[in-house]
Every structure is written in structure tokens, then in C-alpha cells.
Simulated assay, not measured.
Amino acid sequence: MTNQTRLLPWVTLEGKPCVLVGPGTGFMARLADNIESVQLGMASDLLGHVADTLDGAKVSPEELRFVAARLAESLREIHRIAESRGDRLSAFDHPHVDDSDEGDDGPQPSAGAFG
């Protein structure tokens, strides 16, 4: 099994990206999957809240600022998830080729194959 790099759904205390290097099957990969799932669920809930807020007859500037700040946080998280998943899918589009792979004309999965 080959090692891959994965952008994790959190950053360091200094705001720098965290990456995982490995086969993507261990504890940290599962933890990242769970956190991404929670973040996606929270984004979905937030969209419902935003719709309700904007449908309200009277919304204060403070409420709008609060909702905008939460949307920015959520968008940052979702962007990180999309970037991480895109990086992992591109590994399938551009598989590493070494001398032992010469002559192997078998099918190669593309990003479209994974939905």
C-alpha cells in the first residue's frame, strides 16, 4: 500500500495546515473522516438557519453579522474538505509510475469514477 498525503480538517494553533502522510486507513484518517462528516452536517444545519433568518420580517444588523461570520467559518471548513478530497482524487488521475509498471496497460480509475 502506498503512502498518500491528506489535508486534515483542522489547522495548527498558528493557523498552518495539518497533513497526514500514510495509507489513509488508520485512526487519524478515521478521525478526520468523522470531523469532516460533522462539519458537513453543521454546514447543512447552518443553511437552514440562514434561510430562516433571511425570511424573518425584521433582522438586526447584529444578527446579519453573526450569520455572515458563521457562513464564513463554514465555507472555510467546506473549502478545506473539498480541497482535501480533490487532492486525494487527483492521486487516482495521475498515478505514480515507476519502472515496474511498464507494459501495464490496465484500466486506471479517474476522478469521475468516484462520483
Rank of each mutant, 00 (worst) to 15 (best):
1 M>P: 04
3 N>W: 02
7 L>W: 01
8 L>W: 03
9 P>N: 09
11 V>L: 13
11 V>R: 15
12 T>A: 10
12 T>L: 07
13 L>E: 15
14 E>S: 13
15 G>Y: 09
15 G>V: 06
18 C>T: 03
22 G>I: 00
24 G>C: 00
25 T>K: 11
25 T>Q: 08
26 G>A: 05
28 M>W: 06
29 A>K: 02
31 L>R: 04
32 A>P: 02
33 D>R: 13
33 D>Q: 13
35 I>P: 02
35 I>W: 04
35 I>F: 07
38 V>Y: 08
40 L>I: 13
40 L>M: 10
42 M>E: 15
43 A>N: 12
47 L>W: 10
47 L>H: 15
48 G>Q: 06
49 H>P: 03
50 V>C: 08
50 V>S: 08
52 D>T: 13
54 L>F: 05
57 A>H: 13
58 K>A: 09
58 K>D: 04
61 P>N: 13
64 L>D: 08
65 R>I: 03
65 R>W: 01
70 R>C: 10
70 R>M: 11
72 A>R: 14
74 S>R: 04
78 I>H: 03
80 R>S: 07
85 R>S: 05
86 G>W: 01
89 L>I: 00
90 S>W: 00
92 F>D: 02
92 F>I: 00
93 D>C: 02
95 P>M: 01
95 P>H: 00
96 H>F: 05
98 D>Q: 06
101 D>C: 08
101 D>P: 01
104 D>A: 12
108 Q>M: 06
114 F>M: 01
